[in-house]
Structures are given as C-alpha cells and as structure tokens.
Design a protein around this nucleic acid. Structure first.
Lengths: 110, 110
DNA sequence: TCATGATATAAGCATTTAATTATAAAATGA
DNA sequence: TCATTTTATAATTAAATGCTTATATCATGA
C-alpha cells in the first residue's frame, strides 16, 4: 500500500539528485546536523564551488533549506518537502558517514 | 535506526538507475507483473533497443532478473538483491502506472 | 534449411552532468 | 572605507548518458 503517492517526475528528480555520491553523502550528513558550506568543503576533497553547486541543486529541488548566519550559510534538510518522508526512509539505508563527520570536526578552521 | 545498511556506492547506483523516468516506470511495472521486452516496448514510445538497453543496466545491477521462454525474454524484479528492501519501499511512493499498463494490455500483438 | 519474430549488441551523436578556474557578491571588523 | 572571509555564479571542459539506426543472435516453425 502506497504511503504518499508523489508525482513520478518528482521522484525521478529526487533520485537523479541522490544518484551522485557527493550529494547523497551531503544529505546523510545533514541528517545528523546543520552544516555550512565550508564544513562540507572540508569533508569532501572537492572545491568550494563544486559543493555550492551540489547544494544549489538540492535547494532548487527544495530538499534542503538554507539559513544565513553572518558570513556563513547553514544548510539543513527541508522537512516541509513533500518528498521528506521518502528522503528520510531512503537515508536510513545508508551507513552513517562517520569518516566525513570526523573530517568536518577535525577541520575546524572556517 | 537503520534497516539494512547497504554500501553507499550500491545505493548511489540504485538511484542513478532510478533517476530516469523510463527505468523507474519499468521497475514499477515489473512490481505488478513480469513483462517481456516487446510488451515494454509497446508501453513506452521508444525503440526496442532503447528498452533493451535500460533492461541491461537494471540487470547488470542485479535489480531485475530475466527468464527466457521461447523467443520471449521475461523480466522480473530480483527479490534476491541486497537492495530489494530499499527498492520495494521506494516503489511504494510512486503511483501505479495504469496508463502504461493499459497500453501494454491493449497492444497485444507480440 | 530458411524465413520470421524477439531480443541484444554496436556505433554514432546530441545532450546532460560534474568538475575546474576565475570572478562576483555579501558580511565582518579594523 | 578597505581587507578578509564565506558563499555564489559564470564559463569552460571532459566524461557520462540516452537515444537512434544498423546489424547480429537466438528460437520457432514451415
């Protein structure tokens, strides 16, 4: 029995976004805590623009929300999204990204 | 609390595959019934090789299994896959593809 | 064995994607 | 105001993707 019945196009978009390792890991990290762009940039061996562009795609799809605090922009999972129930369940299948979390913690320089 | 903990790369692959409307709809159809390639080709306005190539990708990822019966090859969801619990839950969020099912039924010419 | 129908594979091509580097914009604090 | 830090955007490029057409493979039945 179906749970929410989203439009199939909406679901395709979610999966397109989740079909990238970086974005999927970002979502898993955001499940644990709000993160600012520079923290995420530390976690992944990737440039800041790359991270920003991933976040933009996730934001365009309303899967994440942003909140500016001074110079920092914090991202969090958007629990208001129609797709949130799906997102939440999906993330349950992924192991906690402890290595990435540690890299974020250790790199306290932003 | 996690349900199965798949490798994140496995999940990324599933979503890469599900991030395409045709493949996602194929999986939803296969949830209802086994389908042969020509049936699926009727359902989608797309060439037979296009469908075959999608099925190949799904098969390479072991998300579907094939069974030959005479000249026909029937595909079905592979319930033995590690990812099957995830697949099953995810498909629950998608509306039944009744239009496609009807096109398959009406086009009984293969 | 040969023609037919179903499926798979190969090659080619246009589009999309995900990264990079360079630059702009916004906030902070001296 | 100006330098610094954080983030966003733009332009470019290489690789991946999804389709098409053409062709090969496989099973069937005359």
């Amino acid at each position: 029995m179906p749970k929410v019945d989203l439009d199939i196009e909406e679901v395709v978009l979610v999966f397109k976004l989740f079909g990238d390792r970086t974005r999927l890991a970002i979502m898993k990290l955001l499940e644990t805590k709000q993160c600012c762009v520079c923290e995420l940039t530390e976690a992944f061996d990737m440039s800041q623009p790359a991270i920003s562009q991933h976040l933009r795609k996730l934001r365009d799809a309303k899967l994440v929300a942003e909140e500016r605090r001074g110079q920092w922009v914090y991202y969090e999972i958007n629990k208001q999204s129609d797709c949130y129930p799906l997102v939440q369940e999906v993330l349950d299948y992924i192991p906690a990204q402890t290595l990435l979390l540690e890299k974020m913690e250790n790199a306290r320089g932003c």
